[in-house]
Design a protein around this nucleic acid. Structure first.
Lengths: 344, 344
DNA sequence: CTGAAAGCGCTTACAG
DNA sequence: CTGAAAGCGCTTACAG
């Protein structure tokens, strides 16, 4: 397939490549006649400028990278959607990468995005500041962190204040009589994993609930670890009467096992998940959640990234989180007998 | 930020840019000494080749585009995940675009992907073959359709045979006593929307159920239209006793309204959704679904695209679909009184 | 095995 | 307002 270049357009329009280029970029130093003939030639040839060549010369690509930690996580799917729409309305196209909660994949995508010379990168980072994250900073590539941050790496970020929501959840569970809350934690390699765990720990201490370390299971934010967590927690000698999962995917994994083991949610065991997902409200009983706004997060991240690209240094933003109480956690604690798996 | 180029690497290693380039690309015509010194220089400088410049010369970018119709649809999120993993293992990075079920956005992303000279494109197409889809074909850009096809556009595709699953669903609903099945259809601008609608129509006719045209509501595969569909169908003089939704997102919208109107799923009204989503099994009652393999679809699409890029012309593949009966549809039909919204 | 040179498709001072 | 020329960072025949 013979690629159509700006030269083809120029010669069909009877002008030089320079003039054709000026028309393409909306440079005012062009005559109406030239504009018209070039426009006609472009349509006639169905010409698409080679973005690679353009970026090579002009050192901007009108694209940004978005690296999420797991596309299958509804929270990040929603984030991808808002970021993409916001970027598009500002004339940027979004290249989406998926780290799949693995550091090697994060590094690989970051390298690719750097190589493609995106104008900026929004990333929900994983791990410490080593590897490609460090390269980002060294090269002064405009970067904004979303949802998560990395200790010691100073870039603007938009995150959620997990503390408030988790504290509300713990206090709420305590108020309906629970004393042993099982916590399915995110990985300590992520800032959200650490923050939420710390919030849980201090809330439990402040509320006077059991601080038994066995009540904490460390998962990886993906579904299977939520399932494993439920098994581990229910098999304790003194199992918890309530469960708090640090993200929606682990909650899904947890719910599956709870069902399989014949436990009635909201009756035999209370359950709350971090992250609101539309259909959590559709479960029966409806699932209580700690909610935060993914729309605000995505929109602000794009806004901030554009500021960084423009040379600014926007302030980081911390968004609120809030407990939404639904049926899965609102009943008073039931007799502990309920905790033994029923024989169906 | 001073970009580090291959010249910097070359001079630090004491070789020419040509030799540095050869080492970079693994060209065997290099001496061990040169290889070692270039490798050292690369590490020393943290050099990342400019993918734009490379692609400009070599006319391949080692990237593919994946254009899905809606990232927030779990089916497409899963598809994005499998495609990306499969592509990565073949050395390709995936640029993900999201048409958001809008033709203008599809065209915009397709233009961008063409401009960036991706080596090939996997697309779940929308609309007819006009606009950028036509450009794809004219330019002979390697393309594979997934999930959907476009009439009159002859490119290899991997799709699902919706017919079998829908027929099973209709027959199953009939066998438990339903005669009026409400169908929440996908948009007729998509091949899956048309095929599933046709399958429903013919299955209903063959099974001797009501062919009342009012029992069909045309949605757009997004959640809000599923909600609107339920309202419309339940407000009929003779409302259906069972509902079949043509995708998971419309099913979610439908379930929300069913709950809001106080209808007990599986008892007052039966429900089946096309597309299996992990948590559909967690609903109470668990949701019956028509299942097809997103993993196979993604893996095959990448495989086929690589064949097209290599100059081959792979055969299109049609994957099976199958009904999975769960509690939401397995009870015999209840007295029609159940259909009136309860007063809670 | 290696280097000098040309060229991929653009854009942008520089003259005019 | 327009064109000729240089150059963005690479790769690849072509000689040697």
């Amino acid at each position: 397939m013979a690629e159509i270049t700006i030269k083809d357009v120029a010669s069909l329009a009877g002008v030089s490549a320079a003039t054709a280029s000026r028309v393409l970029s909306g440079n005012p130093a062009t005559s109406p006649g030239a504009r018209a003939r070039v426009a006609a030639a472009i349509t006639e040839l169905d010409y698409r400028p080679n973005a690679q060549a353009r970026a090579l010369r002009s050192t901007r690509s009108d694209s940004i990278g978005l690296l999420v930690s797991d596309v299958r996580n509804p929270f990040f799917a929603d984030l991808a959607h808002t970021v993409e729409q916001a970027a598009l309305s500002e004339g940027y196209v979004t290249l989406l990468g998926n780290a799949n909660e693995r550091k090697e994949q994060q590094d690989r995508y970051l390298d690719t995005l750097i190589s493609r010379r995106v104008d900026g990168i929004i990333v929900a980072p994983l791990g410490d500041g080593s590897g490609s994250i460090a390269s980002l900073i060294e090269r002064e590539i405009p970067t904004v962190f979303v949802d998560r941050t990395v200790d010691g790496i100073d870039v603007p970020s938009v995150t959620t204040d997990s503390e408030a929501g988790i504290r509300q959840a713990v206090e709420h569970l305590s108020s309906v009589g629970h004393t042993r809350i099982g916590y399915i934690s995110g990985p300590q390699a992520t800032s959200t994993g650490r923050e939420r765990f710390a919030a849980f720990t201090s809330a439990v201490a402040d509320t006077g609930l059991s601080q038994d370390p066995e009540l904490v299971y460390f998962g990886d934010f993906q579904a299977a670890s939520g399932s494993a967590g439920v098994h581990a927690l229910l098999d304790l000698d003194e199992p918890p009467t309530a469960l708090l999962a640090a993200d929606s995917l682990m909650a899904v994994g947890a719910l599956a096992i709870l069902h399989k083991r014949g436990l009635r949610i909201g009756t035999d065991i209370a359950m709350i998940a971090f992250d609101d997902v539309e259909w959590f409200a559709l479960l029966n009983p409806a699932l209580s959640v700690i909610s935060h706004s993914v729309e605000d997060m995505g929109r602000l991240a794009v806004e901030m990234l554009l500021q960084v690209i423009a040379g600014g240094t926007p302030e980081s933003v911390v968004l609120p989180s809030e407990l939404i109480i639904r049926a899965s956690s609102s009943s008073p604690i039931s007799p502990s007998a309920g905790l033994r798996p029923r024989k169906n």
